[in-house]
């Protein structure tokens, strides 16, 4: 199962400048665990020390914020587009 993940500019250092990567997993948690194998360091940008998703980066399955679905237990399927969207402050 292959799912497309959109990587925001601030995290592209970890994904070797790629703005889009492929991933797999039955839910977001698995997807991130798998992503960490290919791109070490990405997990700690998304989770804090207590294994909670950080509160200034959101993950969307298609247009929906997973905080309002089942968090990182949110199930995903082939063809879903996952977006990682961090707060940005520049002006």
């Amino acid at each position: 199962m292959c799912i497309c993940i959109r990587i925001p500019t601030p995290l592209q250092k970890i994904t070797k400048d790629k703005s889009e990567v492929m991933g797999k997993g039955k839910n977001i948690k698995e997807l991130i665990e798998n992503l960490e194998k290919d791109y070490p360091g990405i997990k700690e940008r998304l989770y804090d020390e207590k294994e909670n998703l950080r509160r200034f980066i959101n993950i969307y399955v298609n247009e929906e914020d997973i905080r309002f679905l089942k968090g990182d237990e949110t199930e995903i399927k082939d063809g879903d587009e996952i977006s990682i969207i961090p707060a940005i402050a520049g002006g």
Binding site: P10, R55, F56, I57, N58, P86, A87, A89, G90
Partner: peptide, 18 residues
């Protein structure tokens, strides 16, 4: 509602270097 808390200082690249 979108981003409940700001990142702690140092975690996000500063405005200057970005």
């Amino acid at each position: 509602c979108l981003f409940p808390q700001p990142p702690p200082p140092g975690l996000v690249p500063g405005c200057q270097e970005a």
